[in-house]
Amino acid sequence: MFERIKGKTIFITGASSGIGKSIAIVFAEYGANVVISARRMAKLTEVEAQIKQTSPSIKVHKVAMDVSCEESVKSGFESLPSWAEDIDILVNNAGVSPGVELIKDLSSENMDTMLNTNIKSVIFVTQQVLPRMLERDTGMIINIGSIVSTTPRPTAGMYSATKFALSAITQTLRMETNDTNISVVEIKPGIIETEFNIVRNFGNRAASKKFYDAAPSIPPSDVAEAVLFAASRDPRCIVSEITVVPRGQAHPLFVQPKSSKNE
């Protein structure tokens, strides 16, 4: 069934690390050509090298792009090679959650960062891809959300709000394209061990490690496999939503501590 993505072109935001990087690698392994975008070109070069090592025949294009800036997004898409002009699968993966802050302490800077990166970017990037999909009457848009899109969590109120908004955007896109052959999917991860939590702790790796030492988590490759599954369905079938959590996380606020499993 995964052969259905062979020869397809996939565009991934936030592809320099974590979930986005894992998605690029697994899709390349199954024969998809990949466009990887992020702000850090050096990291994208590393991802490209890793893909070429395991999948040498795959086409890879790197785009240094700040998805929170509309002009940067437009410029990035203008730089695409001819083979990537028609995107078959768009994965809106880029997202951030800077800080562990109560609402009363939330800074306007962090609010703007999350609004721009987690919400506006999805619109900016989708607007560059969706018109061509509509012209061809085919394509798939996969938005990486979060399980906190239905249940907010203390100290992550603004991040939760942006993921609530992303779900609204995803559902709206699904309705607006319902009379076409375009599929719209939302993937909702739980606790995933990535650089995301380092950013959330303002670069404090020790605090991030302490969190992962205490709570169950899964690697980003598990999420990438869920994305691959959704993208490789028969055209008659749409897997519209997938929740991916580690064993021990029954709910955003109900997590079995690692230590209790060993007692």
Rank of each mutant, 00 (worst) to 15 (best):
I5H: 13
G14L: 09
A15M: 07
S16D: 14
S17R: 15
S17Y: 10
G18T: 03
G18F: 07
S22H: 10
I25M: 14
V26E: 15
F27D: 08
Y30N: 15
Y30H: 15
G31L: 13
N33S: 14
A42E: 15
I51E: 10
I51H: 06
V60Y: 09
V63T: 04
A64Y: 08
M65W: 08
M65I: 14
D66F: 12
V67Y: 09
D86Y: 11
I87D: 12
I87K: 04
D88Q: 10
D88G: 04
D88P: 07
N92M: 08
G95E: 04
G95H: 05
P98R: 09
I103L: 13
I103C: 10
I103Y: 05
K104Y: 06
S108A: 09
E109A: 12
M114K: 11
L115A: 13
I119A: 05
K120Q: 10
P131Q: 11
L134N: 05
E135I: 02
R136T: 01
G139N: 04
I147Q: 02
I147N: 03
V148C: 01
T150F: 10
T151C: 02
P152A: 09
P154E: 10
A161T: 08
K163W: 03
L166Q: 08
I169N: 04
T170N: 14
D179E: 14
N181I: 00
N181T: 02
E186W: 02
I191Q: 09
F196I: 00
N197L: 05
I198F: 06
G203A: 04
A206S: 09
K209A: 08
A215P: 00
P216H: 05
I218Y: 04
I218M: 11
D222Q: 12
V223G: 04
A224P: 07
E225C: 02
A226W: 03
F229D: 04
R236Q: 15
R236K: 15
I238K: 14
R247T: 14
G248R: 05
Q249S: 10
F254G: 01
Q256M: 12
S260Y: 03
S260N: 03
